[in-house]
Amino acid sequence: MCIGDRLVELGSAASDDDISAWGRLWRLDALLQLGRRLEFDTELMEFAAVVSRHPAPAWHWRLASVKTCLALLEDRLADIPSLIHDMTQLGESAGVDGADWMALIIRSAFARRTGEGLDEIEAEVRQALAGAPFFAQGWRAGLLVGLDRIDEANTIWRAIAPHLDAMPKESVEWLIAMSGYAENAIIARDVSAAARLRKALEPYAHQHVTGAATTPYGGPVSLPLARLCAFLGDRSAATLWFEDAVNRAEAMNAPWYAASARHELAQLERHESPLSPREWEVARRVATGESNRAIAARMFLSERTVERHVSNALRKLGMSSRSALAAWVVGGSVPRSD
């Protein structure tokens, strides 16, 4: 934050928009990670003003990237495809090195959120990661979880888990990786790694999961921390962190993360559930009597994706009918079959 402040001062004194733009962008990065949303919005307007008069196309691509990631943060799913398209075109026309990589990261986050095109994205990511540091395979493992290819995800996790301490904390990706690994550890039922991840994340619980404003926002750090505590059997700590995650996500105007935290807190207080937040949302709409087609239209998903979420929910709960799923959502009175 201090470096960004200093660059803004230097850029203003020298009337140098390039220095000012870097300062504004670095301030955006810091404000996002610190969860200071009101200041972030003000800074974004200042950044946009500097970019509007900057001749370099790369800056217009960076601004488009920030706006695309902000739409994902705010769960404006209908806007995302066109924003990604425009951002990608700007990157290509500007000849930005790594623009395709950045677009893949954002498309991956969108696919994981909606379930749309996950197979294709996973194949792209698998190819893109060839030759990358093995820690980056955690990205692919998350996509495999979304595809319900749990055995493959666990195979990747078993290779990463023994080396968690080797990832340098000064890396921009460290907080993103550690927060993502929480899901891998829980799904693999890896108690030892979950305890290590909890200890690693606790000092950063007041922050948010992000590497930069030009990359997808990952929610409050307290959310994966709460999940780890719940998995480890520390219900009191999990409750506190879920409540914290709700408050921080709401303050960031990140409705998907706020809803996820509220849902998982309710599960903790009522009964355990294996459903993902997206499966829960589909199940909740099934309980209101909506058809798969209606759910698809409301959630900006394909009907096929909704069918997959319903099928996964029924399988995980050991149920065979939509009516049983609806009853479970409403009252939690239908037991899970083991």
Rank of each mutant, 00 (worst) to 15 (best):
N253L: 13
I156D: 14
E307P: 03
L34C: 04
S108P: 05
P57F: 00
C2Q: 15
A296Y: 04
I106W: 07
R278P: 02
L175T: 11
G180A: 10
A261D: 04
A185L: 04
S12Y: 07
L34D: 03
G331L: 09
H309D: 09
W101G: 05
H263G: 11
E46R: 15
D190Q: 05
P133V: 06
R113S: 11
A238Y: 01
C2A: 15
T114R: 12
D5C: 04
P335C: 03
E279G: 06
P203M: 08
M167C: 09
P162D: 07
M87E: 12
S333D: 15
R308A: 14
D79M: 11
H309Y: 15
L147D: 00
A185D: 05
A153P: 08
E43K: 07
A213C: 12
G211R: 11
E202T: 09
E281L: 14
A205E: 12
A238S: 08
P81W: 00
G91W: 05
N253G: 12
F110I: 04
A109H: 13
I150L: 13
R262E: 04
A94D: 11
V50M: 04
A21W: 03
G211Y: 13
E173S: 12
G138C: 09
A161Q: 02
T305M: 05
I106H: 07
A327W: 01
L275S: 03
G91H: 08
I80M: 01
K199I: 06
G218Q: 09
A141I: 06
A56N: 15
M102G: 10
N292V: 09
I160D: 05
T68V: 12
F135D: 09
A188Q: 09
L32H: 00
T214P: 00
L225R: 00
A48Q: 15
H263M: 10
S12C: 01
R285A: 01
I187V: 15
R293G: 10
I80L: 06
I19A: 07
L265P: 08
E264D: 14
W328T: 08
A213S: 13
L164N: 05
R278Q: 13
S20F: 03
M87G: 05
D100W: 03
M319K: 03
A297Y: 10
S108V: 01
A132G: 04
A49F: 11
E116L: 15
S108C: 11
D97H: 04
F242K: 02
G91M: 06
F242C: 02
D17H: 00
I186Q: 01
R6T: 09
E152M: 05
T210A: 13
L38A: 12
A259T: 06
R27G: 06
E124L: 03
T239D: 14
L175K: 08
A254V: 08
R284P: 04
H85N: 12
E243S: 14
R113Y: 14
A136F: 02
L104A: 09
L28N: 04
N253P: 00
L70C: 08
S52A: 14
T305S: 04
G117R: 02
F40Q: 05
A261S: 10
L31H: 01
L301F: 07
L175I: 13
T42Y: 04
V209E: 05
H60D: 06
A21R: 07
W59N: 02
V221D: 02
